[in-house]
């Protein structure tokens, strides 16, 4: 149940995509997302589909895993589709009672659905193939120019990596506490909304207590190792571009150009 959340969950295998520099993956994801919103006709989507499935193939991560992330946004996706489908003005192709579906509505709804789906899958590939630590390292490096305008880049990156690191820990903790309370006869599933909300108290109280305890322990451990922020801090594994990373950048550029060209046709 709670294990279905794929965002921020690394899939540990070895592939070309896994070995890429996190900066490359961040930039490519960004390019891919931007490209999705540039399309106005189907030919662009064919390019995006080819690109996306090529990357999925290379990443060796089972396709099921990427689709899992979609479940979380399924409702949002449906709402978007429904709104676009029924509320877009244009040439009606189907009319029934107060429901009108227009040619344009059908088109935008379709495009919107594909866009959102690809967006989720695209970003899932990044999180599935990159460890949270790598990801924040890459992010910190890419955002470094912002520190000139006093954006606390290092702190943001540190907070992100801690938050990401804690997701699986807290999930596991939730699972444990849930089991312990079920063993004491707790019931998390039946009853109406009020009863269900009430039944969460025995889960949430221990969970918060444990989250605070862990945060405290972590702060102590960091201080014990003399952590004092990002200034002058060096990395054990600094990010260095390899030949493959340049190839990936080249591929990205090629994709972007292809998309722009296709749009012009």
């Amino acid at each position: 149940m709670i294990r279905d959340i794929t965002l921020g969950q690394y899939y540990p295998i070895d592939s070309v995509i896994h070995r890429l520099d996190p900066r490359v993956k961040l930039v490519s994801t960004l390019i891919f997302v931007i490209s999705l919103f540039m399309f106005k006709n189907f030919s662009g989507y064919i390019a995006a589909t080819l690109f996306l499935f090529g990357i999925i193939k290379l990443s060796k991560v089972p396709f099921r895993y990427m689709v899992k992330g979609l479940k979380a946004v399924l409702i949002l996706l449906m709402i978007t589709v429904v709104f676009n489908l029924f509320l877009t003005p244009g040439k009606p192709i189907f009319e029934f009672w107060i429901v009108t579906i227009t040619d344009e509505g059908l088109k935008t709804a379709g495009f919107m659905a594909i866009r959102l789906t690809y967006l989720i899958i695209g970003s899932s590939i990044m999180t599935l193939t990159t460890t949270p630590n790598n990801l924040t390292d890459g992010l910190e490096d890419l955002m470094r120019p912002l520190s000139k305008v006093r954006v606390p880049v290092h702190e943001i990156a540190m907070m992100m990596s801690i938050a990401l690191r804690f997701i699986p820990i807290l999930l596991e903790e939730t699972d444990k506490i849930m089991k312990a309370q079920i063993a004491r006869g707790a019931d998390f599933e039946s009853g109406n909304i009020v009863q269900k909300a009430k039944s969460l108290v025995p889960l949430l109280v221990p969970l918060f207590v444990s989250a605070f305890r862990r945060a405290n322990d972590l702060a102590m451990a960091m201080e014990a190792r003399c952590y004092r922020g990002g200034e002058g801090r060096t990395k054990m594994k600094p990010l260095i571009y390899q030949a493959n990373d340049y190839r990936a950048y080249a591929l990205n550029a090629a994709y972007l150009i292809a998309v722009i060209v296709i749009q012009r046709l």
């Binding site: 089991k179 312990a180 079920i182 004491r184 006869g185």
Partner: peptide, 14 residues
């Protein structure tokens, strides 16, 4: 579960 009582590791966390 009422007949087979299970005390987890670090039960004070519950």
């Amino acid at each position: 579960r009422s007949k087979v009582g299970l005390v987890f590791q670090y039960p004070e966390h519950q």
